[in-house]
């Protein structure tokens, strides 16, 4: 269960040998963000048409010409200006917590922003971003043509929210807490992805039927017991579910 094996994660390795994951945005969330941006462009264009109407008094021809030019400029520059000013975000991307980043994890350069936005000309072919959508579905990094040319990824910005541990853990006595040294060993022995798996299995408790739940918890407990060694008096009389809750309690609660 290495994070790097999952297709929606790009792992960036720094020259210092540290790696950090970037979570790629799915084509669906990108489509939603684009829809939001499309409406933003429409609103801007409508607001602009009201301003341009003021010039009708001076010259209807000039007002009309300006309207055509400005509509065009807004539709092209909306993405370019916002992604540059907001470091890879537009209104839509902000709303859906997405961000465009350089493929090496660096800050975007102005040229990358311009190229990925200019290439919307082919991504939107033949209509409704079908070409771009198809490419991002087929691409291992969910890249549309503009992203490939600009060497960019669109990532999901994860908000680090604490899981609702209170819904699954109670303040019931946890016999494992009598063994601080073994607790520390368990914390070091169970890797983060496995801890997340245990937590999720408990959070989803009520969605599993009783028999299936018992089978899953039994297998998980059996696996964890090999890694978290506690004396028999600490584990005696604990059901598999209670055992897993105690483990998650020591992993997630200080």
């Amino acid at each position: 269960m290495n994070a790097a094996e999952l297709t929606n994660i790009v792992e960036i390795r720094t020259p210092e040998g540290i790696s950090f994951p970037l979570h790629l945005a799915s084509p669906v969330s990108r489509c939603l963000a684009w829809t939001m941006d499309f409406f933003c462009i429409l609103v801007l264009q409508n607001a602009l048409s009201m301003i341009v109407r003021l010039f009708l008094i001076l010259s209807p021809d000039f007002a009309q010409g300006m309207a055509i030019a400005l509509y065009f400029v807004i539709s092209i520059l909306y993405g370019i200006i916002l992604e540059w000013a907001w470091n890879g975000q537009t209104f839509g991307k902000r709303m859906f917590c997405l961000r465009v980043i350089d493929a090496d994890g660096m800050k975007l350069s102005p040229s990358q922003v311009v190229v990925r936005n200019l290439l919307r000309a082919v991504d939107c072919l033949p209509a409704f971003y079908l070409a771009g959508g198809a490419f991002s579905l087929l691409s291992p990094r969910y890249q549309r043509l503009g992203d490939i040319a600009g060497r960019t990824y669109v990532i999901r910005e994860l908000k680090a929210a604490d899981p609702d541990l209170n819904s699954i853990l109670t303040d019931k006595y946890n016999s494992f807490r009598n063994y601080p040294y073994l607790m520390a060993r368990a914390r070091a022995g169970i890797p983060p992805n496995e801890a997340t798996l245990l937590l999720r299995s408990l959070l989803r408790r009520d969605t599993l039927d009783a028999q299936r739940r018992a089978e899953i918890y039994s297998k998980l407990a059996e696996y964890v017991k090999e890694k978290a060694l506690f004396p028999q008096e600490a584990t005696d009389g604990l059901s598999d579910e209670r055992y897993l809750k105690n483990i998650v309690d020591i992993l997630y609660r200080r």
Partner: peptide, 14 residues
Amino acid sequence: STFSGEREVRKYLE
């Protein structure tokens, strides 16, 4: 990175 329970701290540092 090797600490299982410190998922939030790890995410913050990442």
